[in-house]
Amino acid sequence: MSLKPLHDRVIVKRKEGETKTAGGLYIPDSAKEKPQAGTVVAAGPECETVKKGDSILFAKYAGSEFKMDGDDLVIMREDDILGVFA
């Protein structure tokens, strides 16, 4: 199944969170924070600053989470994106 975002919406796949601290301790799933970085999977036709494949940083509580084809994805407005990694 495919999903095409409308207007200025962007679909993002979050990067994997850290599983171990710098000191070597493993972080349980219940204590992990969700990463604020990800990769753009699809961008709507009105998006001007990002395109498919860009690595981005976005606001902590941005967008709506959903699951599609076994992947955890986030759909958000282009305004929720804080920056693009160069």
Score class of each variant (00 low, 15 high):
S2E: 15
S2G: 07
L3G: 01
P5W: 02
P5Q: 10
P5L: 03
L6Y: 10
L6R: 13
H7W: 14
D8T: 13
D8M: 08
R9G: 07
I11K: 00
I11H: 11
V12D: 00
R14F: 01
R14G: 13
R14T: 02
K15M: 13
K15W: 08
E16D: 10
G17Y: 07
E18H: 14
E18L: 15
E18G: 11
T19E: 15
T21E: 06
A22K: 13
A22V: 12
A22S: 09
A22F: 10
G23D: 06
G24I: 01
L25D: 08
L25A: 07
I27K: 02
P28M: 01
P28E: 01
D29Y: 07
S30I: 12
K32W: 05
P35K: 15
Q36P: 02
Q36G: 10
A37N: 14
T39P: 06
T39F: 11
V41G: 05
V41P: 01
V41S: 03
A43W: 02
G44H: 00
G44D: 06
P45W: 01
E46V: 10
E46T: 09
E46I: 02
E46D: 09
E48M: 10
G53H: 06
S55K: 15
I56L: 02
L57F: 02
L57T: 15
F58R: 09
A59Q: 12
A59S: 13
K60Q: 09
K60A: 12
K60N: 07
K60W: 03
Y61D: 15
Y61L: 09
A62N: 01
G63P: 04
G63V: 05
S64M: 12
S64R: 07
S64Q: 10
E65H: 08
K67I: 15
M68F: 10
M68A: 13
D69V: 06
D69E: 15
G70A: 06
G70K: 03
D72M: 03
D72P: 05
L73P: 06
V74R: 08
M76F: 02
D79V: 12
D79N: 08
D80P: 01
I81E: 01
L82P: 00
L82D: 02
V84F: 01
F85K: 10
F85C: 04
A86P: 13
